[in-house]
Structure formats: structure tokens, C-alpha cells
Design a protein around this nucleic acid. Structure first.
Length: 237
RNA sequence: CCCCUUUCCC
């Protein structure tokens, strides 16, 4: 079983979703009982390709296996339905899951955020805080995605302040998400301000900021940053 | 083998 899981998760990581399906079917035909690891990988394969029908088939197998109560499996089901644009089904899984951990909340917040339901995402965020679930980096990134759009600059700033207030040092992915939020919310100046204040930058930081320059027609600034990036020793990708 | 996340592509 572990051998099957290694191959299946390997395919999913490599983006070979259909191959993962073939292997999954073969494993079943050989009488192998899938484990929660198998399901997590297979549900990810369905999310990646936006394959709700396959996802539902896997969901049926999950129920048959009796593993549907495991929080990891539930989280993967929520993610799969959210990525297949089926937020109602994701919500249904969420409500039936007795144990919600930080990943469960993050999956829901990210699901709402990516589909433009900023209010829902923020509501989830507030509810998890009320339940005293500690937000982590991924929570903050997900809520920033919710407010990455025209007209949400104010909310984005509020979240930014909140993050600064409760975190003494944000890690790079959060700051990268902040830059992206400001770019998409229409404030090039604030994005640049955050960028300039960073002590460390990775390739995503540079890409986000250079892409931001392009969106605001600041081509000379984009070129300048591009050169600066290479001076800092990073290769463009 | 082990669930959620940020740039770009789609």
C-alpha cells in the first residue's frame, strides 16, 4: 500500500493526475484498501484538474472506507470541492466534520477567497478567532487573497494592521501576499513601501513587485527592479 | 507515502 501511495503522490506532485487515477484503479483492482494518504493524494489530483465527478467518486470511496471522519481527509474533501467551484458541497463537508483544525479553517477561507467571496472569507476568519483557533501564516495569506482586488484596499489595510499588531516578525510569504494585495487593490505606492521595507526578498517577492510595476505602467521602475534583482544574486525565472 | 498558502502560466 505504501508503494502505491508513493507512486500516486509522486504523480500528483508532478501534475500527472490521470496517471494517478490509473494507479489508483489498479491498486483497487489488486484488492488494496486505500488509506487516508491515498485519499489525500487522489483528492488533490481532482482539485488540480478541477474534476468534480472524479472527486465525487473518490468521495464515495472515502465513505466506503469509513475514513470520512478523519480531519485530514475532511480537509482534503473541502479543498477538492472548493477548487471545483462547489462551495456548497465544501460547506456541507465542513459542517459534518466534527473536528476542525487550523487547516480546515484555512481551506475554507482560501476557498472563499479564491472565488471572490471576501465577506464569507472574513466571516470564517472572525469565527475561527472567536473559537480561539490561532491563525497561522497561511490563514493570513488566505485572508489577504480575499481582499486582493479593486475596492478592497481599506479591508486590506485593516488586515495589514492586524497582522503587524499580533505578529512581531512576518515571514516572507505573508509579506509577499501583502505586496500582491496592494498591487491588486490599486495601491502601487503601498506595495512599493512594503517592498522597500523588506530585509530579505525571494523570487516571488521580486516577481510580484515587477509584475506590479507592469500593471501600473511603471516600466522604467520594472526595469530598474529587474536589474536590482540580478545584482542581489537571484536569477530571473 | 502525509491535509491548507503568496508571484508567473492556465
Amino acid at each position: 500500500l505504501v508503494a502505491w501511495n508513493v507512486m500516486i503522490s509522486g504523480c500528483v506532485h508532478a501534475g500527472q493526475d490521470e496517471l494517478a487515477f490509473c494507479l489508483y484503479c489498479e491498486a483497487l483492482q489488486e484488492g488494496c484498501a486505500p488509506s487516508h494518504v491515498t485519499f489525500v493524494s487522489m483528492l488533490k489530483a481532482c482539485s488540480g484538474g478541477g474534476a468534480p465527478l472524479e472527486g465525487m467518486l473518490i468521495h464515495c470511496d472515502v465513505i466506503e472506507s469509513g475514513l470520512q471522519g478523519l480531519v485530514m481527509v475532511g480537509n482534503s474533501l473541502i479543498e477538492m470541492y472548493a477548487k471545483c467551484n462547489r462551495l456548497e458541497d465544501a460547506a456541507h463537508i465542513f459542517s459534518k466534520l466534527s473536528k476542525h483544525n487550523i487547516v480546515t479553517w484555512n481551506a475554507r477561507i482560501a476557498g472563499h477567497a479564491h472565488q471572490g467571496y471576501a465577506g464569507e472569507a472574513f466571516g470564517d476568519f472572525q469565527r475561527m478567532l472567536l473559537l480561539c483557533v490561532e491563525p497561522n501564516s497561511i490563514t493570513f495569506i488566505s485572508i489577504l487573497i480575499a481582499f486582493s482586488g479593486p475596492g478592497s484596499l481599506f479591508h486590506g489595510k485593516v488586515i495589514h494592521c492586524y497582522i503587524v499588531e499580533i505578529l512581531d516578525n512576518c515571514d516572507m510569504p505573508i509579506v509577499n501576499a501583502l505586496i500582491d494585495m496592494y498591487v491588486n487593490s490599486g495601491s502601487f505606492e503601498l506595495a512599493l513601501q512594503v517592498f522597500n521595507q523588506m530585509s530579505k526578498r525571494d523570487i516571488i517577492t521580486w516577481n510580484a513587485m515587477i509584475g506590479g510595476c507592469a500593471k501600473f505602467d511603471r516600466h522604467e521602475k520594472a526595469l530598474q527592479l529587474f536589474e536590482q534583482m540580478q545584482c542581489s544574486g537571484l536569477e530571473p525565472d
